[in-house]
């Protein structure tokens, strides 16, 4: 091997052409505006910081989702997954949630994870829908392979869309067999599940340029929701 750069080239997966996800703005139930935009590789560390305290939160499988997402984000940053992308939801710059996935090939996409920090406003539902929108409307793929690790995810994706079983195709995350969102299902679900508007105003986009994290305690508190123990 001639040098490190040549070796690195061999370690990096070959990438397909991948048009960027155009940002959009979603009005939440609270009236707040959530900007959904694509994450740059350089921004990965701040997401890792947000995820870190959730690695030990068992509720609703945040631990396993966070741990896997942590690895997927590192892989994205260091070019170890083919055509991976990350979308973030930001309210006044404050991180509300994130989703990621990748292109298996030109026709097939694969959903990885959805992680919501600001709960109770269907942020996860909006972000997952944005992910499907990316695969279908902007990457022009025919189907997206999906698995769920939590009962909430199963209700939101498998039942709510509804997805179809595609058990014969393995998913990279292992575990349960694959389910699939195809074009037909997507178009049927789109009016009730995919929302938001474009273009995003300069003011909102500017506010979403820099990701701000809630305090670590607030991240965990928001994820855990109301508890009987604090009063």
């Amino acid at each position: 091997m001639a040098n490190v750069d040549e070796l690195e080239a061999l370690l990096r997966p070959p990438e397909l052409e991948m048009p960027p996800y155009p940002p959009k703005v979603i009005t939440l139930a609270s009236g707040e505006k959530m900007v959904v935009r694509q994450l740059d590789r350089e921004e990965v560390p701040i997401l890792l910081e947000a995820i870190y305290p959730l690695l030990w939160v068992e509720r609703d499988y945040y631990d396993i989702v966070s741990a896997r997402l942590f690895g997927e984000l590192l892989a994205y940053k260091r070019y170890r997954v083919k055509n991976e992308y990350v979308l973030v939801g930001l309210i006044d710059g404050l991180l509300a949630g994130m989703v990621n996935g990748h292109m298996v090939d030109e026709k097939v996409g694969m959903s990885y994870h959805t992680l919501t920090i600001r709960r109770g406003l269907r942020v996860g539902s909006h972000l997952f829908a944005a992910k499907m929108e990316y695969h279908m409307d902007f990457l022009n793929q025919e189907e997206v392979l999906i698995v769920a690790e939590s009962p909430i995810g199963f209700r939101r994706w498998m039942i709510e869309y509804p997805l179809q079983k595609k058990y014969e195709v393995p998913h990279e995350l292992g575990g349960g067999p694959s389910w699939v969102l195809n074009k037909e299902t997507y178009l049927a679900a789109k009016p009730r599940l995919v929302s938001g508007s474009r273009p995003v105003s300069t003011q909102l986009l500017t506010g979403a340029q820099t990701i701000v994290l809630p305090e670590e305690e607030k991240i965990v508190a928001q994820v855990l929701g109301g508890k009987g123990g604090d009063k």
């Binding site: 979603i26 009005t27 939440l28 139930a29 609270s30 009236g31 406003l121 929302s195 938001g196």
Partner: peptide, 18 residues
């Protein structure tokens, strides 16, 4: 502990999802 607005839960196009 979450305020909701008429826009967010009824009048905005996103209310269908929210």
């Amino acid at each position: 502990h979450q305020t909701v607005t008429m826009e967010g839960i009824l009048t905005a196009p996103e209310a269908v999802v929210n």
